[in-house]
Amino acid sequence: MTITAAVITISDRCSTGERTDISGPTAVQRLTEAGIEVRQTMIVHDDVRAIAEAVQTVALDTVDFVLTTGGTGITPQDYTARAMDPLLRFDIPGIAEAIRMYGMNKGVPGALLSRGRAGVMVLGPRRILVVNAPGSVGGVSDTLDVLLPILEHTIDQVRGSDH
């Protein structure tokens, strides 16, 4: 099964060039190593409209999966979870919960503060999996450690296959 993806980094500092994006390239590397075709990458600032527009824009590139990294915390400038409100037709809470618990079980109590979401966006006749990862390399790695073993089955289900 061919799976296509896009990766969006959400960071004020990376979007202005003040800091180099490390989490996005980490995600691209891990996805590529897993045999997933990453069709597009993007960096946007922490803004509800910018995040929502970026997710919609990369989804137009007929990808199966959009991974965002960053903006999932509880600081006043973390908007990723809120930006998902108008986009996700439904959440898949088990994925987001498993990512948080994975980090917690690795000894990172702050993982419980992530407001990252996972769900399905509907764009015309297409359905796209969207998963929000924390903005750290560790957060991206934890997210993909949880997601990659179930990604093919998840995409198969999102595409409408039977159980």
Rank of each mutant, 00 (worst) to 15 (best):
R39I: 15
R39P: 01
R39V: 15
Q40P: 00
Q40R: 15
M42N: 04
V44T: 02
V44P: 02
V44E: 00
H45G: 14
D46V: 00
D47M: 00
V48Q: 00
R49Y: 00
R49C: 00
A50H: 07
I51Y: 03
I51F: 00
A52H: 04
E53H: 03
E53D: 15
A54N: 00
A54W: 01
V55S: 01
Q56E: 14
V58T: 12
A59I: 04
A59M: 02
L60R: 14
D61N: 13
T62F: 11
V63D: 01
V63R: 01
V63F: 04
D64H: 13
F65H: 08
V66Q: 01
V66M: 09
V66Y: 09
L67G: 08
T68M: 10
T68D: 06
T68R: 01
T68W: 08
T68P: 08
T68A: 00
T69H: 09
T72F: 08
G73V: 08
I74G: 03
I74P: 00
I74T: 12
I74Y: 04
T75D: 05
Q77D: 15
A81V: 04
A81R: 05
A83M: 10
A83Y: 11
A83F: 12
M84N: 12
D85C: 02
D85M: 08
L88A: 04
R89T: 15
R89Y: 15
F90A: 07
F90E: 11
D91W: 05
D91G: 03
I92Y: 05
I92P: 10
I92E: 03
P93C: 02
P93D: 09
G94Q: 01
I95E: 02
A96K: 06
E97Q: 14
E97M: 10
A98Q: 13
A98D: 14
R100E: 04
R100K: 13
M101C: 09
Y102N: 15
Y102A: 14
Y102H: 15
G103A: 06
G103C: 07
M104N: 13
N105Y: 14
N105V: 10
K106I: 03
G107L: 09
G107H: 03
P109V: 05
G110H: 12
G110T: 15
L112D: 00
S114D: 03
G116H: 02
G116A: 09
R117Q: 12
R117H: 06
V120K: 01
M121N: 06
M121H: 08
V122S: 12
V122R: 11
L123R: 10
G124L: 01
G124K: 05
P125N: 08
R126H: 14
R127A: 14
R127D: 06
I128P: 07
I128S: 03
L129G: 05
V130P: 07
V131K: 01
N132E: 08
N132G: 06
A133K: 09
P134W: 06
G135C: 08
G135E: 02
S136F: 12
S136D: 10
S136K: 06
V137H: 05
G138S: 13
G139W: 07
S141H: 12
D142F: 10
D142H: 13
D142N: 15
D142W: 11
T143C: 15
T143F: 12
D145K: 05
V146S: 05
V146D: 03
L147C: 09
L147G: 10
L148Q: 01
I150N: 02
L151W: 08
L151A: 08
E152T: 14
T154Y: 06
T154E: 03
I155W: 06
I155P: 10
I155E: 05
D156K: 14
D156Q: 14
D156C: 07
V158D: 02
